[in-house]
Design a protein around this nucleic acid. Structure first.
Length: 877
RNA sequence: GGGGCCGUAGCCCAACGGCAGAGGCAACGGCUUUAGGUGCCGUCCAGUGGGGGUUCGAAUCCCCCCGGCCCUACCA
């Protein structure tokens, strides 16, 4: 077994602490690590110390940087593995392009010329766009209050930073991105082959958000922009079947086509609500864009709840490819640039949001799916259910009468035929924004050349050490300062930034990348480093990786046998780590394709909180509980208080730490108690009253083994009496089962039960040694200190850690006679003592001879007899 | 709005579809110690949130409702 731990110590939290205390992050980080190590040691947690490291150790982040180079130097070959796709070295791509075997991926080549006609610089730009680590200039999450950009996963639903709770704005900035979207399908598919809680699998699936539908192209009326060359608007829809009901288009305010679509003037007789009172479309669009940009997603959400839709007309019209109808083009913030194409076809008849917008702007509504009976009479508006298509035919195509699924397929075929669209899959998942404008993180092993193109440092220059400085504070801004721009602290170290290197073309001047990696980088692969923590030549020796984590029959994709962690990592760490693991797998560095085979989410330790009559929280520690007339009451300073239940928090005045319990009862009691209060996976209240129970168990066990006054063992070197021996072996069996299934609370209960029986049978010592030793060994995993001491005093020279765990003798698990309940119509009427091996016939005969059973049967005819050997008999009358 | 988990004695929690109770806390009685928020022995207590269904038999499986906790949310 390999059981260890490490310190994930780069990132915002560690840096903020350092800034607050005016110390260097390295000082505070390594200082805290020493404290944590002491605390963990004090608890007797048995991690393998030889494998402990911090993600901030240069010997570790050297390999984090190395993995980044792997990402930079590879691309996703979507054709590989029968279309599943696989990461491959970028050199392979270049070779194939040079050999004329393929052209660049769609969207990667902006030069209107094939690869063979591009110059070297253009080729580099095109190649850079294929990399798994690439620079993007799309809008990102900019958080002025933190002075850094953030990943989608670090922004809460209400548009604020998960850390610090500052507003987050969308802003176009050149940033490193990791192409996690290439792995979307595999990240979903492989969830079926790992043993994770359904909850976490569902969360990942929802986060990845695969949806199947179509891209539809809408031609823009040339008159709108005074040019015949208008670029079509491509929308994504999951309901191509409803295209006949599309009555307008909506673009996200940030959509790149908005400028081109903004007409010079309003058409005649434009509705007042469409213009928002502005004299020209340009003014209306500009005003709307500005107000949308200044809003956080939280403000947008406010509109969601009231269902009020806002937007403005661009003055342009597009053409519905199946009906030829003129569709006004709007911009509205209910359409998000980050999903699909950032543009939708609005079908108010089948979409509630579109219906709301259509009502607000007085736009036509055409039903293309017949609503269910009574739907409209009941005031139903948009009908999103299944039903036969209506109003859905033109000269070449007739969907009427088809169900939704069939109509979708027919429509996609038709769109492909007329060149107006195609089937498409989109994801909610975005590529992973990987730059942070922070000091305390892994520097990127990248330099920029005279062409302002990125160049990877060679592996032998790793690790690229984080430069020493006292000027590490982030440049943050007023939280609402949308116009601010990020300023990485490393950029201030001009001596470090400008560097002369010979990377093969002779000495040249380069500019170092000044962003750092996010805190997730280090925890993306630490499970691999534990396997081979001191390897200087590879992140992990392949043979060692295969030994510990390679695929087996039980773990078809390989991975760690058991990973215990909080559910809060479901769409952050656990998603990122799976992604990196798959990249390393694709590139042949490891044999497992999933990092963690079995995941268990431990429950949260929660706490009660108490409010007084005014609703103010009072300190939980001062609340008195009493039971009056069978009713439990809580009071504080003599005044009644109300009890709530939930997380611990300073504002709730219910935070407790285990320190006090440790001081009063010691590490073993604390460990035992924490495992005893309930199942590992279940959240439960931290209610310290009951801790004496665990304390007593250890005391009682102590007295079972030792004479309290002398400290000498008082066990007897005798055989275990048969009855006690049966209990012993049943206990061993149950305790094992409990440990194996992580139901530690049950195991402790069974140990307690056995010890109680021993105490009862041998009140003043003299318990058989075999029983005493088994008890000590069984409690050892949870109370190692006391167990070790007892083991030693029992006369053993070596640690019990080397002792095998007790094994149950199967023969002793079954009793000679068993009590078998006899039911009549499912109700227990009698209990018989029968030999353990009694078969159904014997059981029935015995039951029929039983007086209580006869009385219950009352001469009624027995219709049926269910006799389950070893369990029960049921007479159905 | 969507999703997940959970409701069993005063409390925390057990119970392969088969006698509702393993263990602990609290309470009560006694013993011990009395400096005691100590130790020991014993006693006590629910019919499984509510309603329906499947079954010979349901805490357990299915459906609806109520309550708690957590996640997610204009995803086209």
């Amino acid at each position: 077994m390999l059981h260890t731990m490490g310190f994930d110590a780069f990132g915002l939290q560690a840096e903020q602490y350092a800034v607050q205390t005016g110390q260097h992050p390295a000082t505070t980080t390594y200082g805290r690590i020493e404290i944590f190590k002491r605390q963990l040691r004090r608890m007797g947690l048995g991690h393998d110390q030889r494998r402990v490291f911090a993600t901030t150790d240069p010997g570790y982040y050297r390999w984090t940087q190395w993995i980044f180079l792997q990402l930079f130097n590879s691309y996703y070959d979507t054709q590989a593995d029968e279309g599943v796709g696989r990461a491959r070295p970028i050199a392979d791509l270049i070779a194939e392009l040079d050999a004329g075997q393929r052209e660049p991926d769609e969207g990667a080549n902006d030069y209107d010329r094939p690869w063979s006609e591009l110059d070297d610089l253009q080729r580099r730009v095109v190649i850079d766009r294929h990399r798994l680590a690439y620079i993007s200039e799309l809008p990102v999450n900019w958080c002025p209050g933190l002075g850094t950009v953030l990943a989608n996963e670090e922004v809460t639903a209400d548009g604020r930073s998960e850390r610090g709770n500052f507003p987050v704005f969308r802003k176009p900035l050149a940033q490193w991105m990791l192409r996690i979207t290439a792995y979307a399908d595999r990240l979903v598919a492989d969830l079926d082959h790992i043993d994770w809680p359904d909850k976490v699998r569902t969360m990942q699936k929802n986060w990845i958000g695969r949806s199947q539908g179509a891209h539809v192209d809408f031609r823009v009326e040339p008159s709108a922009r005074g040019s015949a060359q208008a670029e079509p608007i491509t929308v994504f829809t999951t309901r191509p079947d409803t295209l006949f009901g599309a009555t307008y288009l909506v673009l996200a305010p940030e959509h790149p086509l908005v400028a081109a679509l903004t007409a010079p003037s309003w058409p005649a007789d434009v509705a007042a609500s469409w213009t928002a009172g502005h004299a020209t479309p340009a003014a209306a669009v500009a005003a709307y864009q500005q107000s949308a940009a200044g809003k956080t997603d939280q403000d947008r959400q406010g509109a969601t709840e009231s269902k009020t839709k806002t937007g403005v007309f661009t003055g342009s019209y597009a053409v519905n490819p199946v009906t030829g109808a003129r569709l006004p083009v709007f911009i509205a913030d209910y359409v998000l640039m980050g999903y699909g194409t950032g543009a939708i076809m609005a079908v108010p008849g089948q979409d509630e949001r579109d219906w709301d917008f259509a009502e607000a702007f007085d736009l036509p509504i055409i039903r293309t799916v017949a609503p269910s009976e009574g739907f409209e009479d009941a005031g139903g508006k948009a009908f999103t259910g299944d039903g036969p298509a209506i109003n859905s035919a033109n000269a070449d195509l007739d969907l009427n009468g088809l169900g939704v699924t069939e109509a979708k397929a027919v429509m996609i075929d038709y769109l492909e035929k007329i060149g107006a669209g195609r089937g498409a899959i989109t994801y909610r998942l975005r590529d992973w924004l990987f730059s942070r404008q922070r000091y305390w993180g892994e520097p990127f092993p990248i330099v920029w050349d005279a062409n302002d193109l990125p160049v990877a440092l060679p592996e032998d220059m790793l690790p690229l050490l984080l430069p020493e400085t006292n000027d590490f504070s982030p440049k943050s801004f007023p939280p609402d300062d949308v116009d601010s721009d990020p300023e990485p602290p490393l950029g201030r170290l001009t001596d470090w930034v400008t560097v002369e290197l010979d990377l093969g073309d002779g000495p040249q001047t380069y500019r170092r990348e000044t962003n750092t990696m996010p805190n997730w980088a280090g925890s993306c692969w630490y499970e691999l480093r534990y396997l081979d923590p001191h390897n200087a030549g590879a992140l992990v020796d392949p043979a060692i990786e295969n030994y510990w984590m390679g695929p087996t029959a039980d773990r078809p994709l390989g991975g760690v046998d058991l990973y215990v962690g909080g559910v809060e990592h479901a769409v952050l760490h656990l998603l990122y780590a799976r992604f990196w693991h798959k990249v390393l797998f694709d590139l042949g560095h490891i044999s497992s394709s999933e990092p963690f085979h079995r995941l268990v989410n431990q429950g949260y330790v929660q706490a009660f909180a108490y409010t007084d009559v005014r609703g103010a929280y009072v300190p939980s520690a001062e609340v008195i509980e009493e039971t009056v007339d069978g009713e439990t009451r809580y009071s504080h300073d003599g005044n009644p208080v109300n009890r709530e239940y939930g997380k611990m928090g300073k504002s709730l005045k219910n935070v407790t730490t285990p320190d006090e319990m440790y001081a009063s009862y010691g590490a073993d009691t604390l460990r035992l108690f924490e495992m005893f209060t309930g199942p590992l996976e279940q959240s439960r209240p931290w209610d310290t009253k009951a801790v004496v129970g665990s304390y007593r168990l250890l005391q009682r066990l102590w007295r079972t083994v030792l004479d309290e006054r002398t400290g000498q063992p008082h066990v007897a070197e005798t055989e275990v009496p048969e009855e006690l021996n049966r209990l012993l072996h049943k206990t061993i069996h149950a305790v094992r089962e409990g440990y194996e299934s992580l139901r530690f609370n049950s195991s402790i209960a069974r140990v307690t039960e056995l010890n109680n029986a021993v105490t009862l049978a041998y009140p003043s010592g003299g318990a058989p040694r075999a029983v005493a030793e088994a008890l000590v060994l069984m409690v050892a995993p949870l109370a190692p200190h006391a167990a070790e001491e007892l083991w030693s005093r029992l006369g053993h020279a070596t640690s019990l850690a080397w002792e095998p765990f007790p094994e149950a003798d199967e023969a002793l698990l079954v009793d000679d006679t068993i009590s078998v309940p006899v039911q009549v119509n499912g109700k227990v009427r009698s209990v018989l003592q029968l030999p353990a091996g009694a078969d159904a016939t014997v059981m029935e005969a015995a039951a029929r001879a039983d007086l209580k059973v006869l009385a219950a049967l009352e001469d009624r005819a027995v219709k049926r007899v269910i006799a389950v050997p070893g369990r029960l008999i049921n007479f159905v009358v």
